[in-house]
Simulated assay, not measured.
Amino acid sequence: MVSASSLLLPSSVRDLASCVSDGAVRVACTNPASTLVTASSAASSSPATLAFTTTYHATPLSPSSRPLLLRLTWSHSPVGPPTLSFAGPTASSPAVHLRRRKGTHSLPSDDDQQQPPLAFFWDLTAAKYAAATSPEPVSGFYFVAVANAEVVLAVGDLAAEFVKTKFEGQIPKARFLPVSRADRVVASPNAMHTARVRFAEGAPEHEVSVGCATTSGGGEELWVSVDGKRAVHARRLRWNFRGNQTVFVDGAPVDVLWDLHSWWFRDPPGCAVVMLRARSALESRLWLEEEAAAPGFALVVQAIKTPP
């Protein structure tokens, strides 16, 4: 099975680990006294979203079944409505692009990769979206995956009703949780991207905003806010293009890392990467192997200057 950490972190963020030491981590608190961040004061536009990818960790009820990592990607299509892709639990599992609005599909077992046979079902015919720029539906849809006679993933407001009807309530449901979300956006230097996430199971949902702005003096700055309260503010980005800081959300540590080197210095420009990752314990240290083996939830924002 592929490790959780290898799926959570894009290569640009993994490379960042070798450039930032634990001793460089700074600590801040997101409290009511923090500076409020608004679109008018720090960023003037919202970036166009290319894709959302959510990775889920499923723990089957059967003791003989291994945990699974399953990925759903919602992306814009050059023509027609947004599309959905699904990737199975191994690094070699190819993504299956679900071009129809409704259907079923199956993936055969792979004994070498310890991958069980998977069947999945989806229906996007009545899907509703929060905005025309978002490829991820908010209601009117379902995606359900089944492995070894267990529901290992059920996403969407219509998923429970589908499972009840399809299997007549006679199928067990594994425990599954989102462990990472990667948002790929097209952004200008004065843009703000917002996502709603939970950093731990049962924790409150938070609105996380990532923005890049040009100051009145012509410099650039990066900021990250949680629920409208500024948590990270990095200035003079052409010098501070890589860095990390630890903030506290719900009393627990969340590591914030950024890497804008290829955004500024590569021709053609690469992507800017900002990651927020919940740490599993207050006393744990960033990038230790045991921390990477069981990471907390991670939000990764990858911004590019021009669409592919």
Rank of each mutant, 00 (worst) to 15 (best):
R266D: 14
H206A: 03
A200M: 08
S209D: 07
V179R: 02
E220A: 06
V96P: 00
A58T: 09
T54H: 02
Q170V: 11
Y129F: 15
P32A: 08
S40I: 09
S18Y: 12
D15R: 12
F143M: 07
C271G: 12
V249F: 02
P10V: 03
T59G: 05
S262G: 03
A17S: 14
G228Q: 07
E291C: 00
L260K: 05
V37P: 00
L70W: 03
S216V: 15
P89C: 06
V249I: 13
K229I: 02
F121R: 06
H57C: 08
V27Q: 09
V224S: 03
R235C: 11
A278W: 00
P47R: 03
E289D: 10
R26T: 15
T165Y: 12
P82Q: 06
A24E: 15
V138A: 15
R184I: 10
L286I: 09
M275Q: 09
S75Y: 11
P32Y: 07
Q113M: 12
T90F: 06
S41W: 04
V79W: 02
A149E: 14
S225C: 09
Q114A: 14
D157N: 07
S180K: 01
T133N: 15
D227I: 03
P47Q: 07
A294H: 00
V274C: 01
L276A: 02
P89E: 02
A149K: 10
S65T: 11
S75D: 06
S280M: 08
F265H: 11
S106G: 00
I304G: 08
P178V: 06
S3K: 06
S284G: 10
E283Q: 11
A293Q: 02
T90I: 08
P82H: 05
L177D: 13
R101N: 05
W258Q: 02
V300W: 01
L68A: 04
S12H: 10
L7D: 00
S40N: 12
W74P: 02
S216F: 15
R238H: 13
R279I: 01
S284I: 03
L222C: 05
W239M: 14
E290P: 00
V256P: 00
